[in-house]
Write a protein that binds this DNA or RNA. Sequence first.
RNA 1: GCGGAUGUAGCUCAGUAGGUAGAGCUCUCGGUUGUGGUCCGAGCGGUCGCGGGUUCAAAUCCCGUCAUUCGCCCCA
Length: 459
Amino acid sequence: MSDKKRIYKPKPVSGFPEWLPEERQAEQVWFDHIRRVFESYGFCSIETPSVEELDAINAKGGDGGADVDKEIYVLERLHKEEGDKKAHLALHFDQTVPLARYTAQHFNELVFPFKRYQMQRVWRGERPQAGRFREFYQCDIDVINIDHLPLHFDAEMPAIIWETLSSLPGMENEEIQIRISNRKILVGLCEAIGFQDSTSVIRIVDRLEKDGMVSTSNKLRELIYGENTPATDETPIRHFLSLCRNKYNNSDDLRDALQTNKGIDTSNPTLKEGIKKLAFVLDQLSHLPEGAVVADLSIVRGLDYYTGTVYETVFTEDPGYGSICSGGRYDDLAGNYINKHLPGVGISIGFTRLFDRIRNKGTLPVKGISPADILVVLPNEDSRALMNETAQTLRARGYKVETFHSASKLKRQMAYAEKKGIPYVWFPPFEDGNPHEVKNMSNGEQKAATPQDWTKDEN
RNA sequence: GCGGAUGUAGCUCAGUAGGUAGAGCUCUCGGUUGUGGUCCGAGCGGUCGCGGGUUCAAAUCCCGUCAUUCGCCCCA
């Protein structure tokens, strides 16, 4: 019997986070908070399966676009039969594609505009890094309507998000900014200069913050005008990039900047429409604090299904951490699943990215490991019935109550309450005729009490 | 998928002229009679990532491999 037990050394799976009970407790508080705000605007909840048919996911595509396929996890049985078809189930990559499928599938049973929220895990086969996971939560709100979706909703999305994020417990000292734009501006600009491949232009502009002005400018010149083109021949692009340098707090600032900039011909109808819509959305958000929402023409988003308004949200002192909340408008996402025209607009909180940052900062409001308010001690074996009865009385009055499992030394029972962060320890009488006593663990005070009418101390 | 760094106790890490491992924290027990957090004492706990090679001898040198991590691609 000398040989040691072989153990599997436990280790985390990279990119698949898990939290300790006290962190999980804070996470639950966040979910509750977000749910409360979403529902306060009338969004209803749905949940879709973790998997979609691979075909359903591929149907979203459009032409080429961002090749997300390589980041999609596929599900298959370990023991495949010889004749089994190739894997056809995939873990969803976001919640927009499942929503599109869901909306098409239940079209007849839904009420439009369909406003729903969804808080689920999504999976992406990426390289994990700070704030980047392979399994993480997204909290989405989207509105989908038939044929036409008022621009009102494009403005409502960031308003809801601002309300949600700025009031999350632990976010009090964080400065965040929602940056919005409209893809039609850049698409219109491409039209105006007769360049077809606006998707490639979008892809390059999307990297402006990372690559810098010079590099972006060079890449665009090469793409649109070919190598060796003199800088003077690409003025519309240069002028557009110069507009990206600034953030615009309101529609007046945005219009001023465009009018002052003579290098851009604003007569193109698509471009004109984009500016008008962006201006409208900004106007609708003017009640928010200054800097909460700004127009930023460099925001265009990577995913290819966006067609109008686009959103990103960053920590102002650390935009490089990545967007913690993004989304946009899509003219017809469900068109690949049903022969209806269903435009929508939505936005998604990168819950885990956001939560992990605040968790690492240590500013999460963390209560104890146990949700319990009270630990009822077991003084001796004869008191077990009394302990249970006491606990039941307190539970019936709405308190969360743990009982101790054995008549160990009180030292041990107290230490247990201490370690689990239970604020009150309840002592049933040790002898008949004596009163119950309750100890407040934070200040050490102990006084007589009765289970029927005891209340927590003030503060 | 591509480049850099790292891989010793549950955690954070010491340990280079190569000689079969240490600290702090955690955890367990104790410091007598019915009470926690501090302090004191004792104890549990290590295939030194894994596999080869060099050597009388390797955590320590060489090769490979895996994992983690940072950056790239991409994105919440």
